[in-house]
Simulated assay, not measured.
Amino acid sequence: FIKHTAQIAKAYKEQRTVRCFRGLTLPSYLLSSRQEFVEFTLAVFLFVMLTMEPFLHCLNVDDRFVTNCCEHGEFYCTLSDNYDRISTLPMLLYFVLAADLIHLNIHLSSFVVICTSLWWEFVLYLGALVFLATAFASAIACLPQTGLDDSVQLRDFYNWPSAFQSLLSMSLNMYSGNNFEEISVATEVPLKWWIIGFGACWHVFLTNLMIAHFCESQLRAEFERI
């Protein structure tokens, strides 16, 4: 944290900054290296975690050295839960930094280069997935809510957020097969056809298009090297 504080102060003093969004400027060194950016993000999260450290907050109300003092109020329970949630991101960033060790092996390094070259295309297709899920979820949420209270439509497609989450689960093959059986016999027949339409657009069309585009990108890169 001290390292980045000094580097940021030096960058602003020497005006080595980059304008990113409207009036927002960032030190240029953060955008010139992935490692520097990840390290800075990790330092910010660690500082936030320090300010939320349950152990330090519990010292104000409890003489014991504890990390959970829910008996002193809901604030401390909520603080501890939020601390645990935020800690998941720094844990992931630690492994992102540790991934740089793969450059010690030429085969792993080559694999990472290939994955990195396809990263932007992967992000584009994730954006296409979100757009499709948003569109179909909006349509499904307009259907009349028929059936029993525990039916699949009222459980998984009652409103836009639940329909959006269910469609994302389907696209990632995380949706239960039993739920598909319930959809096939749902009283609201158009629900089944909307689900089929989403599956056709994503699993049949866009997934195959993504594979073909990845292959085309790699072939183009190989021809450029030749």
Rank of each mutant, 00 (worst) to 15 (best):
L206D: 01
Y158I: 15
D62E: 15
L50C: 08
T146D: 12
F180V: 05
T78A: 13
D84A: 15
A135K: 12
P90H: 06
I114S: 05
A137G: 04
T207G: 05
L42R: 00
I106E: 14
L168W: 02
S176N: 08
D63G: 15
F111G: 08
A43T: 00
S33I: 00
F45G: 03
F157V: 09
G73N: 01
N178Q: 12
W119C: 14
F55C: 15
L143I: 03
R22G: 10
F1S: 12
N208C: 11
I211G: 06
E216G: 12
E121G: 10
I140G: 00
S28D: 10
Q7Y: 03
C142T: 14
I226E: 15
I211M: 07
S33W: 02
I114A: 07
R220I: 11
Y29S: 03
M174L: 12
G73E: 00
V18H: 02
C58I: 01
L93K: 05
F37P: 00
G197I: 09
M52V: 07
P161L: 06
N159K: 09
C69Q: 03
V66P: 12
F214P: 07
F198M: 05
I114E: 10
F180E: 04
A43N: 01
K13R: 09
F40E: 02
A137K: 03
V61S: 04
F131G: 04
L118C: 02
R85T: 15
N105V: 00
L92F: 14
W202A: 04
P54F: 00
L167D: 01
H72N: 11
L30T: 01
Q218E: 14
A141H: 03
R22A: 12
I86Q: 07
A141Y: 00
D84M: 15
L209H: 04
P144F: 00
A98R: 01
F198P: 05
E181F: 08
